[in-house]
Design a protein around this nucleic acid. Sequence first.
DNA 1: TTGAAAGCGCTACCAC
DNA 2: GTGGTAGCGCTTTCAA
Lengths: 340, 340
Amino acid sequence: MANDNKLTLAGLAKLAGVSISTVSRALNDNPLIKKETREKLQALAKEHNFSLNRAASRLRTQKTNVVAVILNLTSSTDQSISDPFLLKVVGDLNQALNQRGYELLLSNSLMATEDWSNYFINSSRADGIIVIGQGKSTSKVEQVAQSGAPLVVWGDPKRQANYAVVGSNNELGGYLATQHLVNGSCQRIAFLGDPEHAEMSERYKGYQRALQEAGLPFELELTLSCDITSKAAYDKIAAEILSKGLHFDGIVATSDMVALGAMKALKERYISIPGDVSIVGFDDIAMAELLHPALTTVKQNTKAAAEIMVEQLVRQFNGQQANSEVVDIELMVRKSSKLV
Amino acid sequence: MANDNKLTLAGLAKLAGVSISTVSRALNDNPLIKKETREKLQALAKEHNFSLNRAASRLRTQKTNVVAVILNLTSSTDQSISDPFLLKVVGDLNQALNQRGYELLLSNSLMATEDWSNYFINSSRADGIIVIGQGKSTSKVEQVAQSGAPLVVWGDPKRQANYAVVGSNNELGGYLATQHLVNGSCQRIAFLGDPEHAEMSERYKGYQRALQEAGLPFELELTLSCDITSKAAYDKIAAEILSKGLHFDGIVATSDMVALGAMKALKERYISIPGDVSIVGFDDIAMAELLHPALTTVKQNTKAAAEIMVEQLVRQFNGQQANSEVVDIELMVRKSSKLV
DNA sequence: TTGAAAGCGCTACCAC
DNA sequence: GTGGTAGCGCTTTCAA
């Protein structure tokens, strides 16, 4: 406060009458320093509002304690950027990283156009990378994996990949959602979303498996392919009903936002949910239970997932092998689907 | 690739047969270096996958090109963390910052418990701080302002503060929302939210002004005070109806999430929206128009706001004075309110 | 248990 | 236009 030119370790050392090394060790809680001295110096630092210069320590230690989190967005539509689910994952990662002493540098695939490994890791901006979403294209991610940089991806862990993927059991999720509709006596169950998107394609497989087990025919016209935004889903359902009439009595949506769009299209046509059409979402975003009717959905445990992702990333920092890991999902039965 | 020990400027210089200074200038696009040489060296850098070590340049230049964005959360409830509106602001800031060459370090008030200025600025983690939300407590923010660190706050710009505040015209928003309900012949208009929260209190003032102008009495029992989460709003409306019956025919909600909670409580009781109760939200999150009925709401222009915030922060980097600035709002009339 | 000093990789001042 | 070099503030080896 009083002294305006910024305080450094050297300055603090002078103030305390000890060497720079001693202050450095004390502030890093190094047990080499006598506990008494350590506490005295820490108190002094606090008193003078001193904080170690991270740029300097990062340069010296070659470690940043920063993790770059990259939202792997499919397109530049506003919708996909603001999908509450993605942002929930960011929030949970923030928490998990902080608990381990890491900071979160936020970026997304639309901004970071260069080689990610080069940009974030070689440049000492971050120690590792977490990519949220495998999306349709994984070439950037592969590039990072090739470079050997510490990397964890939120996506579909069942996909074989040469990097660690953490994600929900999407196939099972799709299966349970579909099975739930089958049990509710739905006969013509549609799949709404993008079957080519990594995570979504697994949900699609689960959907097909459930149909088969139930002895229901798989009909291609029940695969309602659309972008994974509410708007696209809304348009798709509207167009479908316009051209073919209401030819389905159940919808397995690939995300809650997609389900939301579908619900709106149905309600506008006075189609009862779940009376005429049952619907199951995916994600369990905060809003799901607040919709009317409350949305039955497959809950992804993002908090647990975030912790696992950080754990796997830290393993790589320590030179250990990182593994893909499956996070449990759970069917949340609410009001948008008929009960058995 | 072939050479495994990390390349530095010195290494590149040797490879190119020029001095370190020349490579440094070339990679920083310094016009002192002949264009030809510059391009040759940039190509060489790309070829060898070289990236300048940021830790080193930050130490040297005393500038990080990083901005800390702090979500000033009210409580640790999941809801407030995942309010899509806050996260929309983060997304827009990310974009605005990147366009100006800054990176976004994400944090929140629950994690960053220390003195923010000390933690982020003194430590050279970031050059400036953007705080999202004035919330109820502004002491941490005041502390940053006191320290003289570059700071911009998303909040209510009408509040007098010794730091730059960018935000919507909340008073006008509250006024327009209320006026709209008045025009739709609502007689007993409730205000739902937290009148003590900085931004919200201005909306509350606007609500009162509109009532007064319309010659409607201001009744305290129509101030429905609750936490600004969907859940709290849902509970509040449910409790209100249970204890006093449906004693209002319009609701001015302090956020879309709050409106969502209220809508659910109403729908569950088969109260028609907007037939029995009209409702207006605030924010215009992506979901607002996808609700059924589509939510009439006051749109906050977060994209414009984000650009202004970054602009004001950069002004401070350049030693200029930063000013509070008001961002225009716009009433989005949809289906949850009666028309005139 | 503490101190001296080298050096992390870069930028920018000064010299040519 | 280009090169030599000091030094940003820290950590850590080595010495005491």
